[in-house]
Write a protein that binds this DNA or RNA. Structure first.
Length: 203
DNA sequence: TCGGAGATCTTCT
DNA sequence: GAAGATCTCCGAT
């Protein structure tokens, strides 16, 4: 996708990223996945956002870059979370990639997650390869060294999907109880009936 | 399938 | 020094 795709507000970008291919390349490996769940974080006005009130730090700097930059941060001391910056420079909106569907190479993802080939996984492990922000980062070998780079290079990039046959579900974001009145904003989006979505709330 | 508890460390106060 | 946009393990149902 081109730069224009990312130069829009976080909510629009979160919706538009669904069903797109997220591709990760390193060494001679190529991992293809499909984005099935995203969350929008709306920067200065969003109490759940790292950039609430335009807070700046060396960690959150990538959020202030123009749309299409990569922001990876560490959560709970052990897991990475992958975000893409949205909108223009100095508007720190972003989209958290919460879940992807593995397409290929399944063995490489399996080794990154469980140090085993895909065939050696239990059914439970197969179902839980990349259905969460921490899991997909581990599966795609994404860590903080990518933070600050852009999404137009050869290491991590997005490709369009011709197949547009899917429905979007809106819901509350996950685990942001501290965000007061912003915690109930319907800024999480996922593909209806997709098995790789991390959390399905009862309707 | 569900729920509770522990793991573990960067970032900012 | 405390908290955190999470995941795994394990036991009970």
């Amino acid at each position: 996708m081109d730069k224009k795709f990312y130069n829009t507000d976080g909510i629009t970008l979160a919706r538009n990223l669904l069903n797109k291919f997220l591709i990760r390349e390193y060494d001679d490996k190529k991992i293809v996945t499909k984005i099935v769940e995203t969350e929008a974080y709306m920067g200065a006005i969003d109490k759940a956002a790292h950039a609430y009130k335009n807070k700046k730090s060396t960690r959150t700097d990538p959020l202030y870059l123009s749309g299409g930059h990569i922001y990876v941060y560490l959560i709970y001391g052990m897991y990475n979370c992958l975000n893409l910056s949205a909108n223009k420079e100095n508007i720190p909106e972003c989209v958290l990639i919460r879940a992807v569907e593995p397409i290929s190479d399944l063995d490489e993802i399996s080794y990154n997650r469980f140090s085993k080939s895909y065939d050696e996984l239990t059914n439970y492990q197969k179902k839980n390869l990349t259905n969460g922000p921490g899991k997909l980062c581990k599966g795609l070998n994404v860590d903080r060294s990518l933070s600050g780079e852009n999404i137009f290079g050869s290491k991590l990039y997005i490709e369009d999907n011709i197949d547009n046959d899917f429905e979007i579900v809106e819901d509350k974001r996950i685990n942001i109880d501290y965000a007061q009145e912003d915690k109930d904003k319907p800024w999480r989006f996922y593909i209806k009936n997709n098995k790789n979505v991390s959390v399905i709330n009862k309707q």
